[in-house]
């Protein structure tokens, strides 16, 4: 068990999203971190449910899908090792906006959202560094979505 925690701590600190952040900050969030595994096809998150955590992908692949009752599921983005899923835990109403589904055997770390927010509030300088990592993810995904909307392969 001890061994596992140590491995988890290592994985947390070497995940590209967090790597290099202040060690104190990483220590602070370590307690809120868990490891989870999914089999192919398992739901990871569900649209409409409370968004309680930040997900760091270690292995495998998660598909982010849009669902609506009157149309087929549409996959718009896949997220792989080194990437993250979700910023819904950060802002109200803290509800997942997409479905996340494991597209292969997938291992992730989750950081509990309430605890993470608390750490961020307490450590504004580290929070700024954290946001400097999160905002580009959002911005990049927005860009990807724009390119998808352009449907560049359609003409």
């Amino acid at each position: 068990m001890k061994e596992d925690r140590r491995e988890l701590a290592r994985e947390l600190r070497t995940h590209p999203f967090l790597q290099g952040l202040d060690p104190g900050f990483l220590d602070a969030i370590e307690g809120a971190t868990q490891e989870r595994e999914f089999e192919t096809g398992d739901p990871v998150v569900r649209e409409g449910e409370p968004a309680g955590e930040l997900i760091l992908v270690l292995q495998g692949k998660i598909g982010l899908e849009l669902v609506a009752p009157d149309r087929p599921r549409l996959s718009l983005l896949t997220v792989g090792p080194g990437e993250i899923v979700g910023w819904s835990w950060l802002l109200p109403p803290r509800i997942w906006q997409v479905d996340g589904r494991a597209l292969k055997a997938t291992r992730v770390l989750t950081i509990e959202g309430n605890a993470l927010r608390k750490v961020l509030e307490d450590r504004p300088k580290d929070a700024y560094q954290f946001m400097l990592r999160l905002v580009p993810v959002i911005s990049r995904r927005l860009h990807i979505a724009r390119i998808q909307v352009m449907d560049i392969h359609a003409v």
Partner: peptide, 13 residues
């Protein structure tokens, strides 16, 4: 760019 549930590959650009 987009896929349905039958696709287990990467989605994005």
């Amino acid at each position: 760019d987009r896929a349905g549930t039958e696709w287990y590959g990467d989605v994005g650009i």
